[in-house]
Write a protein that binds this DNA or RNA. Structure first.
Lengths: 210, 210
DNA sequence: TGCCGGTGTAAGTAAGCGCTTACATCAGTT
DNA sequence: AACTGATGTAAGCGCTTACTTACACCGGCA
């Protein structure tokens, strides 16, 4: 009835190690780093607390490993080539939808990462903002390419990328992180369409730009 | 050397009660609710911990009072009439600057409020999102008025208000809450201008709208 | 002077926390 | 059967935390 009872892992996603990481992510997200005790994490992961410390030398190291687990840029970048072949407004809407969906998938991670950047900026500043830079560059490259094709107006692609990201991220943050969708229903598809229509009109090429 | 030593308050902003609140706000913002101990708050406020508990029945009640201390909507609303009399893009830039400056002033409060809405949504959901609704309504009323004057295109003012807010808030969040301005310098005035130029082009009236 | 309101020091309580140690069990492999 | 790796139970340590209690001091006012 004790020890060794857990079946051998069926693969990397079912291992004790992974299970602890997933559980920790959820609890760090819901209760904050300090609000989630190692005791509780272990219990919810279905392991003994001593097992948790066999896998991770400290709670802080557990957090670090939780934070280094996602890599969403490839998926976001991979979407750009397809978007370049769509009508402009449709491309924007598709990119915004894709970004929003991606953010929803890693919602817990976003929450924990933001909390930690604010709690311990010295440790995460470079990593986090390096990631943000890559994200902005990704979207800026999309705008730059369409500008070279003569499809868009005359604006700095980086600012456009930041504005695009800002609209979508803030919408995600309010609806999903700050629980607005529990307060008042909202048509996400319609919202994205409306936002992107305004954004498209603000960035599309018009005669005076040529 | 003990007790009674503190001079009588010079006004509401210098009282022990207020000093504790201000200190708590700063520490809750920097270290989080749980990371800021009542011991530390009392020490930084220059009072004995027992004094803190004489003023506030519990740490939780201290937090609640901290969170109920700001009222920025009047200031934001008061800016709208003046904006209505400016050229459109200039009005947007002014409004964005004003919103950004206001957010910077209450940066600690924003940080603590967001953390708490995520930690205990059931307690703050209605208050917080009621505030967000008012904010969106305020900006939507600006767009609605200009639409009636025939200055703006055909779009739902609420979505425009949300997009406007999203751009500015996300910029503030990344630069100020997530410490990006310590990672990489950024011309705030230029950024706001560029964002608002895109936004203005996306919302201004054009012949096809008439 | 005495009273009152406000505040301080010192000590303490009960609970919680991250982490450790000792001993034990189980499954798989040789 | 023996060994190994992974994990469990139980108990514990030292420290921290929110909060409390007892006693004391001070300034202002009547």
């Amino acid at each position: 009835m004790t020890g060794g009872k857990v079946k051998k892992s069926l693969g990397p996603y079912d291992s004790t190690h992974e299970r602890i990481l997933e559980t920790a992510l959820g609890l760090f997200s819901t209760k904050g780093y300090q609000g989630a005790s190692t005791r509780e994490i272990a219990q919810e992961a279905g392991v003994a607390e001593v097992t948790l410390f066999r896998h991770f030398p400290s709670k802080e190291r557990l957090l670090q490993e939780v934070l280094s687990r996602f890599s969403v840029l490839p998926s976001l970048k991979a979407y750009i080539p397809a978007a370049l072949e769509l009508p402009y407004e449709e491309a924007l809407t598709g990119m915004a939808d894709h970004l929003f969906d991606t953010l929803v998938q890693i919602k817990d991670w976003v929450r924990v990462m933001q909390a930690e950047v604010q709690r311990s900026p010295e440790k995460l500043l470079t990593v986090f903002h390096g990631f943000i830079d890559d994200l902005f560059d990704t979207y800026a490259s999309f705008f730059r390419e369409l500008q070279q094709r003569g499809n868009l107006g005359d604006f700095d692609p980086e600012y456009a990328a930041r504005a695009f990201h800002g609209i979508v991220f803030c919408y995600f943050s309010i609806e999903e992180l700050l629980h607005r969708k529990q307060y008042k229903a909202n048509d996400r598809g319609e919202a994205i369409r409306q936002f992107m229509r305004i954004f498209a009109l603000g960035t599309v090429s018009r005669p005076a730009d040529r």
